[in-house]
């Protein structure tokens, strides 16, 4: 078995999980500064949306993007009814989104039951240098990269992206220049939610959907975004690369327990050395 290839795969897969679970948060928390404790539940909603879409007969490649759209719509609903009254009120947002997360877990458990569900990808395995890996995990890696690049391109190269960045940087100025900042906030929150829902749907074939699955991801998502620092996308990318590499290498070379420990340990040390995050010393940017 080609050891280097095995390590490369472990790192890439772990990296893709970090990107998937933290990209939406990079938009919602990194750009908008909304501490969304219901982020894990948005992942869960995406997973369930994918399960439901498949159950009514849609193929997986349609169910996944549709799940993103559905969760995006839910995000907009949440922004209009809860979040928009709480911009700039950190503690209130924290409480409201925590309540929202409990509510979402409760309602999904009531409707779908406590057991986990899944949609099989039916792609089988492929051989990577002698190692059998699920073919679908390569789809996940590709999907994560595409989401990252797509988000970057949207913010960097479109005029909508320019307006969004301007609004996040200085809402008063943006408003003075005629931007409807309330709509921009709504759109950005919805977009972050859609990314999160998409991620949840992409996770389903290998990780399943369960009402409490958000708990598994929320801490890691915040760790990645916070240690990424003030550049939401570059920071999340570099933090995900760092943690993905550590997790992939240590988990394969030693054990999953040590992989978890190593990631948390590095996060602690890094926040001590770079309290502003990896991109803390750079000029402001994406």
């Amino acid at each position: 078995m080609d050891t280097l290839l095995v390590y490369a795969y472990q790192v890439a897969f772990s990296f893709s999980i970090f990107i998937l679970i933290s990209l939406g948060l990079a938009v919602i928390f990194g750009m908008m500064k909304v501490i969304n404790l219901a982020q894990g539940e948005f992942i869960m909603l995406g997973a369930y949306a994918c399960v439901v879409c498949s159950a009514v007969g849609l193929p997986l490649w349609l169910a996944v993007p549709l799940a993103g759209v559905i969760v995006g719509a839910i995000g907009i609903l949440v922004e209009r009814t809860v979040i928009r009254f709480l911009y700039g009120r950190v503690l209130d947002t924290l409480l409201a989104t925590w309540g929202l997360s409990l509510f979402l877990v409760g309602i999904v458990t009531t409707i779908a039951g406590p057991q986990s569900q899944s949609v099989p990808a039916d792609l089988g395995g492929v051989s990577l240098g002698g190692l059998q890996v699920p073919a679908y995990s390569l789809v996940m890696i590709g999907g994560a990269c595409a989401m990252l690049l797509g988000t970057y391109a949207l913010w960097r190269f479109t005029s909508l992206g320019l307006i969004v960045r301007g609004t996040m940087q200085n809402p008063e100025m943006a408003r003075a220049l005629g931007t409807n900042t309330s709509m921009i906030y709504m759109f950005t929150f919805g977009f972050g939610s859609a990314l999160t829902g998409l991620a949840g749907a992409l996770l389903v074939p290998l990780f399943g959907a369960a009402p409490t699955m958000g708990l598994f991801y929320i801490a890691k998502a915040f760790i990645a975004v916070i240690s990424g620092g003030p550049w939401p996308l570059l920071g999340t990318l570099s933090a995900s690369s760092l943690y993905g590499t550590i997790d992939g290498v240590i988990s394969y070379a030693f054990s999953s327990v040590l992989g978890e420990i190593a990631v948390l340990l590095v996060a602690i040390v890094m926040l001590r050395l770079l309290p502003q995050g990896i991109t803390g010393r750079l000029r402001k940017g994406l």
């Binding site: 078995m1 795969y9 890996v133 708990l215 992939g248 988990s251 394969y252 054990s255 999953s256």
Partner: peptide, 20 residues
């Protein structure tokens, strides 16, 4: 013998070690 924390759902490293 491998112990897996209750919140770990990425089994790619385990699957690779099993194949080893």
């Amino acid at each position: 013998v491998e112990f897996i924390p209750l919140d770990v759902s990425n089994f790619a490293p385990v699957i690779a070690r099993l194949q080893d």
